[in-house]
Amino acid sequence: MESPLPEVPLFKVFSFLDVFDLLRAGQVNKYWNKVADSDRLWRDLCLKKWSFYNFSCEHLGPQTWKQFLLNQIRHERRMELAQPEDFIYKKTTGNLGLGTAYLSGSGPSMNGREKSVICTVSSKRMLYAWDAWEVGNSEGDIYTLTVPELRSVSKVNAFNYSVDFLHCSPDKKWIFASGTHQHILPKVLFVECLLRPSEGESPLSVSLPFSSCCRACWAPRRANRITMMFRRASFKKTGFSTFDLTLERTGGRTAIQAHQIASFLLPVHMESPIWMGVSDGNMIVFESGPYLFLFTINGLQLQQFDDHELTICNLWVDSLHVLTTSMDNYLHMYMWEEEGRYPYLKSCFHLEHIRNDYTPSCFFPKAICDNTSVVCVVSRSRETSILVMYSLNV
């Protein structure tokens, strides 16, 4: 009679499996089921899938890590298969502006009962803060503030021009800052130096050797990887470059090293994109005219989508969703496939910006989403906007 593989090496083997393979392994026999049900295995899968959420056992309540993960997958699957008739439609009008974000509900739900709460920024320029953040101004300065007091922690002059892009990495370790001026080299700063500034010393930073930056995104599951979109040759060529950041200590000194791992230029005949996003750090999604493209970071085209009739005017990307809007009064939802399986990006559903309203928008409509809702802001003028929310009817 063959003896079963001891529990420790079997656990090690199972630690390399994804969710679906681990479920299948648990169906082999009672012994494998016991090992495959280990809370540690399922917690590691949760941390891998949602790397930068602050999970703890207290948040779980009575459910196990396995139950939590499977519930989240069911929520994602429900959104993936949703049809327009599955949503509850609401709208409101006012001076809402075009800046929109989720305050809660946009991440994994620990108890399944959280509601999506959103925030908008109006043209009155009122600012409310709930978390630590950085602000860039037109003088090229970066301010680090505390909340809710908004007390200044540090002020750093990054450029001689305005800071047009300011992105914090998912693990809050790095800050990417850049302007759009053709002679500006983007910088990556070490956040700890901004939170604990040393008098008379400049914060640790490194310049990335690509000027004319027009967008940048951190990889949601690789905290030290950033992809930039830049222009070349009088803005007629668009390119993408990807860097990995490391903090290296040699001879008692600490320095940031930026390692370029990939770069490519789009074909000249392709209309230059305005928006971009990244998934696992190896794929880039961007719009070009009415089309949505998916490329590898090395320039290999993987997919092309033509779900819009008119030019895509806004693109929103997170680790699960890709959301596009266009001037044809429609938005379209895509979702990333798990573990980079083909098709890497799946086209899901089409929703109207405003139901039965084909009045053209004066400004580009913008949309965001989570696992239970889609929010879109359509502006008729600088003083009037329409906020639309589609909530899954559960």
Rank of each mutant, 00 (worst) to 15 (best):
A177W: 07
S104T: 15
A158C: 13
Y342W: 11
E352Y: 09
L292P: 00
N33Q: 10
L392N: 03
E114P: 03
Q304M: 15
N29V: 06
E80K: 11
A223V: 07
F293Q: 08
L195A: 09
F68H: 06
G299W: 08
G281F: 04
P273R: 05
R40L: 14
F235Y: 13
L60E: 04
L127H: 14
L320S: 12
A129M: 14
Q301T: 07
R43C: 14
Q72V: 06
M110D: 02
F210H: 11
E192K: 12
V394L: 15
L195N: 10
E352H: 08
F230G: 07
F159L: 02
L300Q: 14
R77D: 04
H353W: 03
V394E: 15
P6E: 05
R231E: 09
S116D: 10
V394R: 15
S373D: 04
K172G: 12
A101Q: 11
W32I: 03
E192M: 08
E139S: 10
L185C: 14
I274M: 14
S162R: 10
S152M: 13
I274W: 08
M79W: 00
R341M: 07
P290I: 01
P197N: 06
V117Q: 15
C119Q: 13
T250A: 10
L47V: 12
R225H: 06
T250Q: 03
E339N: 10
K237S: 07
T359C: 10
H308L: 00
C376Q: 03
M270Q: 13
N29F: 07
I274N: 12
R40Y: 02
A258G: 05
L266H: 03
Q303Y: 00
S373P: 09
R215Q: 13
L247V: 02
V117T: 14
S169Q: 03
E192Q: 13
K115L: 08
H269Y: 15
I297G: 06
D171K: 00
M276A: 09
H332T: 13
G105F: 01
T120P: 02
D306S: 12
Q304F: 05
A129P: 04
I175G: 01
K172V: 01
L103K: 11
E271I: 13
F364W: 11
P220C: 05
E309R: 08
M79I: 06
Q260L: 09
F14Y: 08
R231W: 12
F52H: 14
A262V: 08
Q72Y: 04
G94Y: 01
C46K: 00
N157S: 04
Q257H: 12
A233Y: 14
F240W: 11
R253T: 11
R221A: 03
A262H: 07
L208F: 01
D164S: 15
A101W: 12
N371T: 10
Q63A: 01
L103P: 02
M276T: 03
S381W: 04
H332N: 12
